[in-house]
Write a protein that binds this DNA or RNA. Sequence first.
DNA 1: TTGTATGCGTTATCAA
DNA 2: TTGATAACGCATACAA
Lengths: 339, 339
Amino acid sequence: MSIKQLAEYLGLSKSTVSRALNGYSDVNSDTRLKVLEAAKILRYKANPTAQRLASGRSKNIGIILPANDRMFVSSAFSKVLASASELLIEHGYQLIVTTISSLQDEQKVYMDFISSGLVDGLFIVRTRHNDPRITLLKVHNFPYVCLGYESGYQEDRFVDVDNQHAFYQLTQRQINARHQRIAFLNGPVQLTLAMAREQGYLQAMREATLKVDKNYLLYGELTERDAIEMTKQLMALAVPPTCILCADDAMALGAIVACEKLGYQPGVDIAIAGYGNYEHSQYNKPSITTLDYDTHAVGEQMSQLILNQLEGQTFATQNWHKASIIIRESDLFEEKFNA
Amino acid sequence: MSIKQLAEYLGLSKSTVSRALNGYSDVNSDTRLKVLEAAKILRYKANPTAQRLASGRSKNIGIILPANDRMFVSSAFSKVLASASELLIEHGYQLIVTTISSLQDEQKVYMDFISSGLVDGLFIVRTRHNDPRITLLKVHNFPYVCLGYESGYQEDRFVDVDNQHAFYQLTQRQINARHQRIAFLNGPVQLTLAMAREQGYLQAMREATLKVDKNYLLYGELTERDAIEMTKQLMALAVPPTCILCADDAMALGAIVACEKLGYQPGVDIAIAGYGNYEHSQYNKPSITTLDYDTHAVGEQMSQLILNQLEGQTFATQNWHKASIIIRESDLFEEKFNA
DNA sequence: TTGTATGCGTTATCAA
DNA sequence: TTGATAACGCATACAA
């Protein structure tokens, strides 16, 4: 069923049918009704590929994720994507996720993707310091929205959790609990989220005039495994910390496991907290104190921002989302910390 | 940079250039070299949309996932997808993931997807009894590969873990440990994976001439939450089980949490095991006895099967993959079980 | 071995 | 308000 057949059936020209279908004003309203009805009866569906070629637009938003074990695994991130997708669908767009393996050249993959006509816009996640992907998209004037922020980002092109404030709060909480030796297991240093979280941590420490031992600030992947290694290092120090903050809940779990193996009891001997409120955190023993944010709102916001660019929509933008502390067992404290 | 410009630059016709680029044999090898070189220099990239329209093929494999919280969250599944994607990329294909919300009509979404020309083939996951999606794809003669199996599936169109044998083994292990009252928290009954796992469980029980109390076989979503509810039911029975097998590790975690809340000590008072070897299972307290399979091989296999259909490739097919038990703490047993 | 011509299913431009 | 006609960028049957 092509537009040609539909036109023949109606005794009209392809162009008239096309205009009627696409809501153009210069078409007789009777004609439009007939066309619409016939389209319904004959179950006519425009071929998206042909539309794309002719119009230059695909109605797809893309996102490129690393094809490794952790591809989709952060449950918080999965929720963000799910709600981003739902809003797009409501507006006639589809989210399409594709993968990049570590063997592929990132710039080339992005370049191919945007020049393929497969997508009209891109979501960029895990933004990095001076992110080369953003440079590329800017150069080619390609619509995008970042999940992540760094100074210089345009207001209408990013959504982020206020990571700095989140970790500022989380650190203050430990300071109020009279911790003095607070370590921070951070994610990869080039990620903007890691930089922001670190800033929040440092700010709180500074304000409390607590010294940050260089050995207390470590970087690794956001995995249990790396956190275990880093925790071992921490606890082997001459003066180990009494509190370990982690860049996400996977690391917090790793820290807990490592501490226990070393004979410490998290939530009693040592305080540990994470970020992201991952599915598992509430069930862990001890349950993990964490930072929670509105994943639904973040996902929606990303879609709204890209639609603003693409469709001239005017969704009100709210770039920044707050994270709030969920107090659980892993950072309850005892007087002994202050010995 | 279109093929037309490239042809003009070379002083050749579009068709010759096209054939040279696409590896046709009826082109002079000198010409081909020139074309290839020029394409490289000028950074010519064929426009996929135009290719698709002209050839009717997209070089994309699609997969449609529910846009809900658990969309990507099983870590085992994420790994499967990652390696499926990697193999596809090696062969010039891309995996594209799109979502379906609970508000959308599934048949319509699948229909739109396959008639859009966006994908050449589809992966079907979470196969169901008499899956209507498969019926649809068969009717339209659209290439697909299932992750999941039910009697009647074609050999070259599915990959699956031998769920039945997996749970047969897992149940036997509990029987050998002299458990007599073994419950099974299963997934949604319409899923083929749930049916197969249940068969394995029943088979082992039957062979051991153990009676399966109807109250011991429950169905729910593969989530911690549902498992918690189901476990409460189980343990409230006049004669509660001494062992709870779960359809996946998320449920196993839920079962553990619920049992502890009720005063039981998993791994001591009660045995619990799961499936999938989720990231978290090894770190839980108690660590979770589970069934592990080669996610990498499964993902690769899916891609190979779809390429066999699409490209006339002849990858050797291995439909069935074995799961093996990883013994951990959650189902260690004590004599008291046999009181 | 190469080139010409046509088609893929739309949208968009311009006359009528 | 409608209809020819030309793109869109490529693939391909057929002719040369």
